[in-house]
Amino acid sequence: MTDTPVRPDAHAATTDDRSPVRPRRPLSEVAAEIPDSPRKRSWQPRARRLLKHALLIGFGLVMLYPLLWMLSSSFKPNDIIFRDTGLIPTELDLTNYGDGWFALLHPFHHYLLNSAIVVLGSVLGNLISCSMAAYAFARLKFRGRPIWFAIMLMSIMLPIHVVIVPQYILFSELEWINTFLPLVVPKLLATDAFFIFLMVQFFRGLPKDLDEAARLDGCGHGRIFLQIMLPLSLPALATTAIFTFIWTWNDFFSQLIFLTDPEMYTVPIALRTFIDATSASSWGPLFAMSIVSLVPIFFIFLFGQKYLVKGIATTGIK
């Protein structure tokens, strides 16, 4: 329906006025000529660094205020959360954590475990299937590529609320309802166009000299993909893994619809069962368990983000 959105000939964009004046040399040669950057030892950078830290901390506190409020409220007795809205709790009351953990039909770790299963399946699925599809879209020439690419993007333009019912009927006919299959299998089949597109953009950002050279050495696409593209795209893979983890961990709607037995419930559904618009809600336990469910994703992020650092700059390109 749209005009071909992907241009196989993207390099045409760099027009003549940008073309080099000097004869071209390999980047490595250029780099070799670069001496160590000069280090000025004066008070000025240090003061600037301190100022930067101060600003970041200040800004961070504002950003985190709602979160800190939730953390603080999780230590307040359920009854007074709304009456005593100060940021510092007057006493450290851990009952919300104990109550919350055992308030539902299963102890909370049951839901954590269910979520972990869904999440791990999804992460693996997305990493494998999306990177494969992305390689094809980024580096292979095949007929109808722009059209397939457009179709891929279109598939994420419909709101979930209108596709969920047909999806339910489909999975129901397959007898997949109340299993983790409707949540994991689609990821194995690269239905998350977001990540395909993400990796396409990263792959296209990698110097083409590399796979060109590999091809001259007789490498097939399989080896180029596995031994060149993937190792060089660690940041993109880490991003995919982190995001898949977090979004699946937080995804409420499809898990609500596809899982019917409380035995199979995951963390987001369990969290919803603390509150109900029509009767008393257990806000304290909800906050406590929300904090608990944030812990895994926080640590995944904390450890995962160091892989974002290992880009081309550190793996080194010769």
Binding site: I128, S129, M132, A133, Y135, A136, L140, W148, I151, M152, M154, S155, L158, V162, V163, I164, P166, Q167, I169, L170, V185, P186, L188, L189, A190, T191, I196, H221, F225
Partner: peptide, 20 residues
Amino acid sequence: FLAPWFLGLGLITAFPLLAS
């Protein structure tokens, strides 16, 4: 390389899309 994606398109994405 696109096999999983095509499979997903045919089996999982296309039906709800066309159904809607």
